[in-house]
């Protein structure tokens, strides 16, 4: 992938919507209110989107020939989840997951 016009357009549009989210209530008139149902949806956005982003990155990237899913990444992700659970620390989670993946990719036990 190169830094083509298409990708730059995406980045600029992404920056624009991000700035609008940040500026929203700061630049809108003070009496602006959010409907209840929108607030309700906002509460669950992260819980829905982040796991949905994780799934294909773990299952289907760099899948070895003849396999349906990337087993090494699945195992590494499970170890990382355990680390996240135990430590609640982003770097411990990263370290555990990457170390497991590197170990499996280097030794190829199965």
């Amino acid at each position: 992938m190169t830094g083509d016009f298409y990708a730059w357009t995406i980045v600029c549009a992404g920056g624009a919507v991000t700035l609008l989210a940040r500026a929203s209530f700061i630049v809108l008139p003070p009496e602006t209110r959010v409907p209840k149902w929108v607030q309700r949806c906002l509460k669950y956005v992260a819980a829905a989107v982040l796991p949905a982003l994780v799934l294909p990155d773990v299952l289907f990237r760099d899948v070895a020939a003849g396999q349906a899913v990337n087993t090494y990444r699945i195992i590494a992700a499970l170890v990382a989840m355990l680390a996240a659970w135990q430590t609640r620390n982003i770097f411990a989670t990263l370290g555990a997951g990457m170390a497991t993946l590197w170990f499996l990719q280097y030794f190829r036990p199965f």
Binding site: Y44, A47, L50, P51, D57, A84, T93, L94
Partner: peptide, 24 residues
Amino acid sequence: WSLDFAIPLVFLALVLPALQSRTH
């Protein structure tokens, strides 16, 4: 080195502590 794997790992680290209720 499969550094792109850091992306889902960061998301896991961000989302797991945020699942604070059964609804989440």
